[in-house]
């Protein structure tokens, strides 16, 4: 438990942002990669599209794929609980790297 953020309120979340760079958007393969990466953290990890869309569970492959985030869309990333900072940094990094590795 490296993070202080243990409570459930909005304030307990660590936030980040990244832009989808793939011309086809967040399609199946990146969605699986993102989900797998999110699952590797203990923290609760959520993402949202379009700047202020609804937060969805980043560990749910169905939810991430159904988001259908498009090219150029800014994705919000937030996490709370253990490793929350690492989780946000990792997910933002993955999206920024255009899901390369």
């Amino acid at each position: 438990m490296s993070d202080a953020a243990q409570t459930q309120g909005e304030d307990s979340f660590v936030h980040g942002e990244a832009v989808v760079r793939d011309p086809t958007g967040l399609h199946a393969r990146p969605a699986v990669k993102l989900t797998k990466l999110a699952k590797s953290f203990e923290a609760k990890v959520e993402i949202r599209g379009g700047g202020n869309g609804p937060w969805i569970n980043a560990k749910s492959p169905n939810a991430v794929m159904k988001m259908k985030a498009g090219f150029g869309e800014t994705l919000g990333v937030r996490a709370s609980g253990a490793q929350a900072h690492d989780a946000v940094a990792a997910l933002v990094g993955l999206i920024e790297r255009n899901f390369d590795g």
Binding site: A28, K36, K39, K59, S60, P61, N62
Partner: peptide
């Protein structure tokens, strides 16, 4: 299969894997 495997890759239980596949 892709959904189930993605769920399984995180070490999820068999029930969770099935639900994720069926959620699609």
């Amino acid at each position: 299969a892709v959904m189930a495997a993605t769920e399984a890759s995180g070490g999820a239980s068999l029930d969770a894997v099935r639900s994720t596949a069926e959620e699609f």
